[in-house]
């Protein structure tokens, strides 16, 4: 069993194998993501019932919640991929970690932006120093740090390792950051917490929300595969099979 796992692991760590295997996966995942997300958003925006207290403005959760979920999940993915790279010296893991950074950063930004848009009608302010918003802001800052570190290093290999270490520092810190931010926001503004307490959601809103989350996750997986494939071509450009592949792509 273990041996099977190890063999499977080694297979997946080979960029060439990954490149070949990921092609159909990225295709089907991409279509599935597009289909599910479109359905969920049309359902959520057009057909889900109006919320009793917030009216139509609540509908932004069909974008806000998935992007917030995803931005945290992507950070953990980066940290795990970075740890795999550091421990087993697998280049592919570094590639995945690297291409995930802009994806996660855009999701964190999207979550903050939609949160602000939602906050204006709900709280009367674009920005409130609420626990979740503050944590998301810090997450965005962590992403910016990773991205800046990658860009600053002259050699991509050093950038990979350095960013992996930074991601590990960040991921260890995320629970502590959330805890401390919770502490400070409750100390100063106990009132804001009431707004974030959610009433139990009706099933007719929950289903499109869950669908939307699923769609976002699938879209992330598809994008991750596509971007990893590009990164492999870029970083392994000296390998023979990559040069043949690029030639083929050029002839098409």
């Amino acid at each position: 069993m273990w041996q099977l796992f190890v063999r499977w692991f080694h297979k997946w760590s080979s960029p060439k194998w990954f490149y070949e295997m990921s092609k159909p996966w990225s295709f089907w995942l991409g279509w599935a993501a597009l289909l599910i997300t479109t359905t969920a958003i049309i359902w959520g925006l057009g057909f889900a019932p109006v919320e009793r207290l917030q009216g139509n403005s609540y509908r932004i959760i069909f974008i806000h919640v998935p992007s917030a979920f995803l931005s945290e999940a992507i950070y953990v993915t980066i940290a795990i991929a970075g740890a795999i790279g550091l421990i087993w010296r697998i280049k592919l893991a570094y590639y995945v970690a690297k291409i995930c950074v802009p994806l996660g950063m855009s999701m964190a930004f999207l979550a903050l932006a939609t949160g602000a848009i939602w906050g204006k009608p709900t709280w009367g302010h674009w920005w409130v120093w609420d626990m979740r918003i503050t944590s998301m802001l810090i997450l965005l800052l962590l992403y910016i740090g990773l991205w800046a570190l990658h860009n600053a290093m002259e050699r991509p290999e050093s950038g990979d390792r350095a960013a992996a270490i930074l991601a590990l520092v960040g991921v260890v810190n995320i629970p502590v950051i959330k805890f401390s931010v919770n502490l400070v926001t409750t100390l100063h503004q106990p009132a804001t917490l009431k707004f974030t307490e959610k009433a139990p959601m009706h099933i007719s809103m929950l289903i499109p929300l869950l669908l939307s989350i699923l769609g976002f996750y699938l879209a992330f997986l598809a994008l991750m595969l596509v971007r990893s494939r590009i990164e492999i071509l870029r970083r392994e450009r000296k390998a023979k099979w990559v040069q043949q592949e690029i030639e083929q792509l050029g002839n098409r």
């Binding site: 810090i138 800052l141 740090g145 800046a148 570190l149 600053a152 050093s158 960040g170 810190n173 950051i177």
Partner: peptide
Amino acid sequence: LTVGLRKGGLLLTILIMPVLVP
């Protein structure tokens, strides 16, 4: 992390500041 970079000072601040929030 930034000692090998010629202009590491500002980058160092960007990297470490969010971690120091707690």
